[in-house]
Nucleic acid binder design. Structure first.
Lengths: 223, 223
DNA sequence: TCGCTCAAGACCTCCGACGTATCAGGCCAT
DNA sequence: ATGGCCTGATACGTCGGAGGTCTTGAGCGA
């Protein structure tokens, strides 16, 4: 195994074992390199790789730190990875989202706070009846994110955040092509919100399913 | 932005835009570095980072290639990330798995082939009635993976693979050793398999839920 | 035709140097 | 005494070059 890969494993080991805790500062590059028995250049490659997936946070002039290791932060790397997928796998991502999002929405129905409900309502109100497609998609993303966040599971939240990326494009496309898509989306959002307000988990789940299935159906018929 | 980060973005751009396709070979380090306007050292950091998340595949003495970009390959990076999480977030990962796995099992009930069913049966038979914990864990992993693969969604498959990472699972099972978990797991596996054979999606979903919920419950009571 | 040898090509590792950003402490004016 | 500015130390950022190692494939001989 290359020395750089060894270094990645060793640094990972130090974190997993607890020798390095979130927020801790690593020894400076030259010292760490000496400690791990490799050159500064090779060590930097390892550090850079770990920084890309948000394990480490390097700050020029300051030092290198272990990030908070929050699921939210780490799964952010997921969206980077998802970006590489082309349209032919979008349907698979959407299918996973179709599983997760209704479940998350149902969970949210039992936990969401009144303030959150009001915030969501305000958000929909602000959008109006005939928003531009770009505004609608942006709002759609924010609406669902707000709900999922109320599910109380940050892993689930980050995962859906990452998965929603690639389907965003498709939604824009759809809004531009399909006539009634805008109005339909608005109505479905209202329905989901109403179910949440009623604390009706099953209704919320169903509306979320319908909401995503309509996108999926359209996408499937178009490809 | 640092030149290395720029290089990462540019290489990503080349792949996403289609200038570089899966399997393509990149220009050699020195040329690519010159082309992107940075030093070979800095370029190597970028390449190494992309190699860690399986976007690039570097082969010493040969060259650097774009990987197949299969969801399976890219989401493999997920398990690396999951490894960093401690026990307090394991429950959240398990909760996501509890959503996905039953859904995947239900999907499999409608699509799984006879050969796959026979293979799963043979696998359980081979394990016997009183397997070692190590064997059981390995079998458990393989059993579920076989089912999920039959769901026909490779993204879902990779995602679950990452979530049920060896670290998480191993730790959970070690503690379960003393309980009646072994026999219970075997019985539940049989039940899931029977439901699949009956093409009974709802039964399969339920048994999968029960299966995971029991682990979750135990874990929750232990932490 | 098969197997071996060997040289070219490409990545691997290291070194040393210099550029640049950050932070902490001292200095000075208010 | 307090606040702001300046400066030096520190640590990451970037670079160019020199060998080293591994893979590949062409060329050669049995």
């Amino acid at each position: 195994m290359a020395v750089t890969d060894e270094a990645i494993e060793k640094i990972k080991g130090m974190i997993v074992s607890g020798a390095l805790r979130p927020g801790d500062r690593l020894p400076k590059e030259s010292e760490l390199a000496a400690g791990l028995g490799l050159s500064r250049n090779s060590l930097r490659e390892a550090v850079r790789a770990l920084a890309l997936i948000r394990i480490l946070d390097v700050r020029q002039g300051d030092g290198t730190y272990v990030t908070s290791l929050d699921p939210q932060l780490l799964l952010e790397a997921l969206s980077f990875v998802v970006d590489f997928h082309r349209d032919d796998t979008v349907l698979e991502f959407l299918a996973v989202r179709r599983i997760l999002e209704p479940a998350a929405t149902a969970m949210a129905a039992l936990r969401i706070s009144e303030q959150q409900l009001d915030a969501l309502t305000a958000q929909l109100d602000k959008l109006g009846d005939a928003p531009s497609v770009e505004d609608l998609v942006a709002c759609d993303l924010e609406f669902h994110r707000g709900i999922v966040r109320s599910s109380g599971n940050s892993v689930l939240c980050s995962l859906l955040d990452g998965l929603s990326g690639p389907t965003t494009r498709a939604r824009v496309w759809r809004g531009l092509t399909q006539e009634d898509a805008v109005g339909r989306t608005l109505r479905e959002h209202r329905a989901i919100l109403a179910a949440l307000r009623d604390r009706d988990a099953e209704a919320a789940r169903s509306w979320a399913t319908v909401h995503i299935a309509s996108v999926e159906q359209w996408l499937r018929s178009t490809l």
